[in-house]
Amino acid sequence: MPVTTIADREIHVDDDGFLTEFDEWDEGLAATLASNIGIGELTEDHWKVITFLRSDFKENGETPTLRRVSTVGEIATKSLFQLFPKKPARKMSYVAGLQKPKGCI
């Protein structure tokens, strides 16, 4: 696994830059990650998503899908596209320091 330096810290990431170690993330890092992908300021609505993602991952060991964020986290899919434009599934996981959502092949 590659190691990179983000906000003066050594962080383990995968080939696409997603964090691979749950515990290397903190709230300060989230702001840096967000600005890396062009999200200016993390609002309360962003934090609601991030908090849900992290607690759900902690419980289930998997990055939740957009559907799960909407049905279990009660955050409308439409608003996820406003908060994390174009690629919400990837972007929200990236900022929350979770593994990249999986396809099959």
């Binding site: 080939d15 599934a89 990837r90 999986k102 396809g103 092949i105």
Partner: peptide, 16 residues
């Protein structure tokens, strides 16, 4: 597709 590519796993993506 909702995925970001036809093949999303790195090795398969490079081959296919």
């Amino acid at each position: 597709t909702p995925l970001d590519a036809a093949f999303t796993k790195p090795v398969a993506a490079r081959h296919l």
